[in-house]
């Protein structure tokens, strides 16, 4: 049955909110699995990814229907285009949570190379950035979105620091530790990519709210 345009826009809003909640849960479980080297939790993350893939298709279809049937303009057009992009970004974040879970499976059998200190901090930044980015979309808050973008440099620094320590303090000194070090480097890389996707979401939210393009223009922030 066809619905009023504004009801369908609300459906899109609710869909993105649901997608965001699922993705936040998935990252949380992936990070917990990494911290505790919890294989069962890692497998759960990998299994749950299909839920997000299915929801992505539903939201894509909803966006296409909205454009095809209503030819939206102005704020509605920006909202739908942003919804479509967020949908894709969130699905990529879920894939990265799965990547982290796969790294957990790789390091589960051998003793942990070193206690994880900066990785949990990076995970915290990633979770905070994703949550804040989704919140900024739901509340149409461009200042909140801007705060997400400003957090990204912290994530980059943490990832570089984790990577340099594992390469120069461990792999360079003893190549035999590489199978235990490389998954940790990759996990940091996955978490840093999560932060990048949160940044893209925030850039899209600023466009949606203020019609200002800040993507590729950091000076406009």
């Amino acid at each position: 049955m066809s619905k009023h345009f504004h009801e369908e826009l609300q459906d899109l809003n609710d869909g993105i909110l649901k997608m965001g909640t699922l993705v936040e849960e998935l990252i949380d479980q992936a990070v917990t699995a990494l911290k505790n080297r919890d294989v069962a939790m890692a497998r759960l993350v990998i299994e749950r990814d299909s839920q997000i893939d299915d929801l992505e298709l539903v939201i894509d279809e909803l966006c296409l229907d909205l454009v095809a049937r209503h030819q939206p303009m102005a704020v509605d057009l920006r909202f739908i285009m942003t919804g479509m992009r967020l949908n894709g970004e969130l699905e990529r974040v879920a894939d990265l949570a799965v990547d982290v879970a796969e790294r957990v499976l790789e390091i589960a059998d051998a003793p942990l190379l070193k206690p994880l200190v900066e990785t949990p901090r990076l995970a915290l930044v990633a979770q905070r950035m994703v949550k804040t980015a989704i919140d900024s979309f739901i509340t149409r808050d461009s200042a909140l979105a801007r705060s997400v973008i400003l957090m990204d440099s912290e994530a980059d620094k943490l990832k570089d620091s984790i990577q340099n320590e594992l390469i120069y303090d461990y792999i360079v000194k003893d190549g035999a530790v590489a199978p235990r070090a490389v998954p940790l480097i990759l996990a940091a890389r996955h978490l840093e990519r999560v932060c990048d996707h949160a940044t893209y979401i925030a850039e899209d939210v600023i466009y949606m709210v203020k019609a200002e393009v800040v993507k590729h223009h950091p000076e406009r922030l």
């Binding site: 303009m73 509605d76 920006r78």
Partner: peptide
């Protein structure tokens, strides 16, 4: 049509 400046324009073109 993408980002009108006046609220009245936006209200009109978005129905």
């Amino acid at each position: 049509f993408k980002a009108p400046r006046d609220k009245r324009t936006e209200d009109y073109i978005t129905g």
